[in-house]
Design a binder for these strands. Structure first.
Length: 273
DNA sequence: AAATTCTCCTGAAGGC
DNA sequence: TGCCTTCAGGAGAATT
């Protein structure tokens, strides 16, 4: 599933093919995504130029002449740059046509979205309440410490709350907590400033490393096989429940936290009072 | 307000 | 081999 590193990889992959290019047409084969693809998108976008391809959290923003296309890949979405001559496959729901090329949105589970707004995109209801970017200086241990004050929510849920910080999905929440040595069920408000500083640093490192790896597969995804830059991250805990901790050999435990698979080492990540 | 649960969807994996 | 069931999961909406 696309996490922030993949969305950023996608952004870097499609930006060169789209920026300063004119949209000649829009094809919507299935408008029933997470939200209905607005009918106006076809009429409004034709003739507009994509000025810039940006990212906010896991949202991709195509800044055009009079508005912004807001795209989310959801669980299973991907974007590819293709020749318009290539026939659409199953789950190819939306094409933005640029002459002979197109940006094709494919999403089997349809948890993603393709929206269009002519207002300030950052004030859009989906974007206006987002927390800071994890790779920005605004995101720090002291920031997390302040946000967590008096909150009893498990730290893992807290990290995955997009109003606290964007882009930290299930995989990296698990991984970062393991590396920082914090139990996923630890109440957010009970974590020390020092621990949060470690955690913030860890999150940045893990995301940066993943983006770097996404970059290595960047070449593939925009032309041939259609796999979005899917980094084969070496994961410490995610997907390893019941296996030995790579640090101490203790069997990793797997629990459900907020409907999400949560894996941790009961030895390396001790729950404290 | 804060925390928890529900919901969307379909491919993959497991059971028989 | 094939059909049926279960599960995963981003994140907004609904509920407690």
């Amino acid at each position: 599933m696309p996490e922030l590193p993949e969305v950023e990889t996608t952004r870097r992959g499609i930006a060169p093919a789209l920026e300063q290019q004119k949209i000649t047409a829009v094809i919507v084969r299935n408008k029933k995504l997470r939200w209905i693809v607005p009918i106006e998108i076809s009429r409004d976008l034709a003739g507009q130029t994509v000025q810039k391809v940006q990212r906010r959290g896991k949202y991709l923003l195509l800044a055009c002449d009079t508005g912004t296309v807001i795209i989310h890949l959801g669980m299973s979405g991907s974007l590819r740059i293709l020749s318009v001559a290539i026939a659409a496959n199953k789950h190819d729901h939306v094409d933005l046509i640029f002459g002979k090329q197109c940006l094709r949105f494919n999403d089997p589970r349809r948890f993603g979205c393709v929206l269009w707004t002519q207002k300030d995109a950052l004030l859009h209801p989906l974007l206006k309440n987002l927390g800071p970017e994890p790779l920005s200086t605004a995101f720090s241990g002291s920031y997390l410490f302040r946000c967590a004050n008096k909150r009893h929510v498990p730290i893992k849920n807290f990290l995955m709350d997009s109003s606290i910080v964007v882009g930290v999905g299930n995989i990296y929440a698990n991984e970062a907590l393991f590396i920082a040595g914090i139990h996923p069920q630890q109440a957010a408000g009970s974590i020390s400033l020092a621990q949060f500083q470690c955690l913030a640093k860890t999150i940045k490192e893990v995301l940066r490393a993943a983006i770097k790896q996404g970059g290595t597969t960047l070449r593939n995804f925009s032309n041939s096989d259609g796999k979005p830059g899917y980094f084969k991250q070496k994961l410490n805990v995610y997907g390893r429940g019941g296996l030995a901790c790579l640090t101490c050999k203790t069997i990793l435990e797997e629990i459900r936290l907020g409907q999400r698979s949560t894996v941790y080492c009961p030895q390396c990540q001790i729950l404290t009072l």
